[in-house]
Design a protein around this nucleic acid. Structure first.
Lengths: 202, 202
DNA sequence: GAAGCACATGGACGCAATGTCCATTTATCA
DNA sequence: TGATAAATGGACATTGCGTCCATGTGCTTC
């Protein structure tokens, strides 16, 4: 809500951090109020009382801006520590899906944008790599607890979890039974067989 | 290559199948010659010597047309029957990735388009469901051979394979070691432990 | 303290691409 | 043979991304 009265002026021969902040704030607000449809560079610039030039001086493309908005919103990851791997994955995915549902699936739009905007790929790559690292922490805890089969490839499992999450995001299936999903993803990697917790399938 | 000399005319009070065929052929040709960049409704309509109205009478949106083009090109699936599940998955994914690389990853564009074009979602859903069915056939063969662990969920594994394939497509990683990828996806579901075949990781 | 400079900013514009409207053309039916 | 129904074509409206140039502001140098 950093709404400046009228318009923003130059503060000299260097970028104005207030402009960037206002742009990100405004983008997040538009996303909350109008959804994905309204989230255009024109609307963001207009409502942030900045020009599109300013916007493009900070981020090289629409996709890059969207990713910045998303990363700012995502600051708290929401990984769980329940004591069991399936529980951790179920709750963590549940938090993630709830987050995705709450912001109109911006992240789906970012993935989509990356398919045509090649400047986005590297940024998205490193973003994904960070997520892999976070999931690996969850998996290492499970490994310490002795839940995983011998020789389980933590990186492969982490990527698998993310792949499944993306898959559900992109196919608009964010409302599935999370215990079931976590079980399906993780249980082949577990040492001892588990009973399935949740109920209905998709 | 059904190139009509000049222009196409109405054949009366019913749609002209030649128009649809010419549009699909032309779209495939443009895709092969100019890649994804040139694959616009304007270019397709122009080069197919049809109007955009005609195009939109046959398909409700750009994405729907792209999916039709893709499905027409994909008629031969390329699923393999090597005698082992990991081999089947490795070769089948290899064929799929080669196909995707060959057409400039149109399918990635279709997935991207589905994120904003909601008329595409149902079509993409049923398309995906067909792929699930095909993969399940591969998996059933493995089950008959006794390769899978007891109680393995075939549908979950089929979805997992597709999820991984999409994931690699969307992150522009179509050149990975396919034996390695197939192993990572499948081996937790196998009854007996396997040695890994391929070499380097991503 | 004053003048020039470097660079961010704003507004307007170019361009490309999607989807729509209406007049025209064609075949069919009475 | 004339009227009707529907597809087709060309032009157009609209939207949205990215760019250009004049303007303004603070910093630097003399």
């Amino acid at each position: 809500m950093s709404q400046v009265g009228i318009s923003r002026r130059s503060i000299g021969a260097r970028p104005n951090p207030e402009a960037a902040a206002a742009i990100l704030d405004t983008a997040a607000r538009i996303l909350a109020e109008k959804g994905l449809k309204g989230l255009t560079t024109e609307a963001i610039a207009r409502e942030a009382r900045a020009s599109k030039s300013t916007l493009y001086r900070w981020w090289p493309s629409r996709g890059a801006l969207l990713l910045a908005v998303y990363m700012r919103m995502k600051q708290d990851h929401g990984y769980a520590d329940t004591g069991s791997l399936i529980g951790d994955v179920a709750v963590s995915l549940s938090n993630l899906f709830a987050f995705w549902r709450g912001n109109g699936s911006v992240f789906a739009l970012i993935i989509a944008e990356a398919q045509t905007d090649k400047t986005l790929l590297p940024a998205l790559d490193s973003f994904r790599e960070e997520r892999v690292g976070e999931w690996k922490e969850v998996l290492e805890r499970a490994q310490v607890r002795g839940e995983l089969r011998a020789g389980a490839d933590l990186r492969a499992l982490a990527e698998s979890i993310i792949a499944h999450a993306w898959f559900h995001l992109l196919t608009a299936r964010l409302h599935v039974d999370m215990n079931r999903l976590a079980f399906d993803i993780v249980h082949p990697y577990l040492k001892s067989p588990h009973r399935i917790a949740g109920g209905q399938n998709t």
